[in-house]
Design a protein around this nucleic acid. Structure first.
Lengths: 236, 236
DNA sequence: CGCTGGTTTGAAGGTCGTCAAGAAGGGTGG
DNA sequence: CCACCCTTCTTGACGACCTTCAAACCAGCG
């Protein structure tokens, strides 16, 4: 499978792309580049940042706080774009780091704008993709604001399951999820210690397990009921 | 002052608009319409929704949860657009209600897309506006995820102060803010009772007061230090 | 082999939610 | 005009959830 197929396939699922549009999409991106785990690719407050297409691997976008803590905004996975939002802002509004070894290709602002201008339909597809990402951020906000730690955690993993299923990276036996408990804590607004206790509870109740970066959802129905998960915002 | 000046001025501040572009912007919007306080204008999950330009008044976008609680996503004020994000999604990903009597004009998806197509620079300005709104949602997420109740509350009011100052609706003596404590709670992820306690603490420490829908920030410096507020995401 | 970062568990404490109740203000209908 | 809502604001007491502090265990890695 070609490296940029997932991104293209995602847009194509929203709106079938012509040969020309596919070509433009490919030209918009710089050649893929491999980066190590834990690499920071953009930094909040910096100017002239690029967007990235994440071709392979896991990453996160986040903000650091003056008091030393951080909040993870989103977990892009293969085929996702990061930083499209910042492309028109004077400065990047978040940082972006890899969580595993990853391959990315770079997209700069002029390229995106030219692309939108030359192929309006492609522009619409990119906007749709950005809208979907924003809907995920909104759901994340709801998750942290109005759900308890267990509900919140269950919700996050159901979202992963759904997203990875859509791109063919999850099977009935589970999915790969290389997130440490401190990282999960930064996403869920919890301490790593409490994340540990929550995971134990979910495990002891036979709902799900996370072991060796492998997630298994054992009782999908109960997880859904517990967390109030409604995946509408992920639909194409 | 004409009713839609604030919206136009906001875009114009990002990117000076030509006469043609201004005209297109005006034609994109339906005639202004007055709506009562507490009116729901869009409902989550509904299809074929419109976007709105909020010309006068306060409103909020939010999501209701199965368990009966709700999370407020954002507080649009005069000159803000709501629902641009949903325009490309199959269904609206949030609801939208007025908090005061308000006047709005309606914008439908085809109009926006035509506008972007005919006037790419105007499209860029709209995208910038949407990006800035999303940056506010992100900051809101950080606020709820990683700040204590006091910090969080102080941060929200500093953001209001900054935003209203930019559109000339705040003065040195304070600003109008018609949000009840239950509404603030739904935005901050707190109970109304706790919001009350927090406001009391801020008042007793001489930091700020909220009385009769009027906010006064008495110690801006200390508020900023307390909340870790950095307004970069609001800049033009 | 020691170091670092992740996982796991326990104990104690603080923040915030829940329950309860009184006071004040606005709107409605008698 | 007044009685009767309903919503909001306010305060107190109690309890739960989550954090903090502390420590042990383990795996990977220099």
């Amino acid at each position: 499978m070609e490296t940029d197929t997932k991104f293209e396939r995602k847009l194509n699922a929203f709106l079938p792309l012509s040969e020309d549009e596919r070509k433009c999409l490919a030209e918009m991106q710089s050649p893929p580049r491999t980066v190590k785990r834990g690499q920071q690719l953009t930094e909040e407050g910096q100017t002239g940042q690029h967007a990235f297409v994440l071709l392979v691997g896991w990453a996160c976008s986040y903000k650091d706080l003056p008091n030393g803590s951080r909040q993870i905004i989103s977990f892009p996975v293969s085929g996702d774009v990061v930083g499209l939002r910042s492309i028109l802002l004077r400065t990047a509004d978040h940082s972006f780091s890899t969580l595993t070894e990853a391959t990315v290709s770079l997209v700069n602002a002029p390229n995106v704008l030219r692309c939108i201008h030359e192929h309006p339909r492609l522009g619409a597809a990119l906007l749709w993709s950005a809208s979907r990402d924003e809907a995920m951020v909104v759901e994340h906000l709801v998750n942290i604001g109005r759900r308890s730690a267990v509900e919140r955690t269950a919700h996050l993993f159901l979202e992963f399951a759904e997203r990875l299923l859509l791109i063919g990276e999850a099977t009935a036996s589970g999915f790969y999820c290389p997130l440490s408990q401190p990282v999960l804590g930064d996403a869920l607004g919890l301490t790593p210690i409490h994340v540990n206790r929550i995971l134990r509870r979910l495990r002891e109740q036979g709902l799900m397990t996370l072991h060796d970066s492998w997630v298994q959802i054992h009782d999908y129905r109960e997880m859904k009921k517990l967390s109030g998960f409604q995946g509408g915002y992920l639909e194409i």
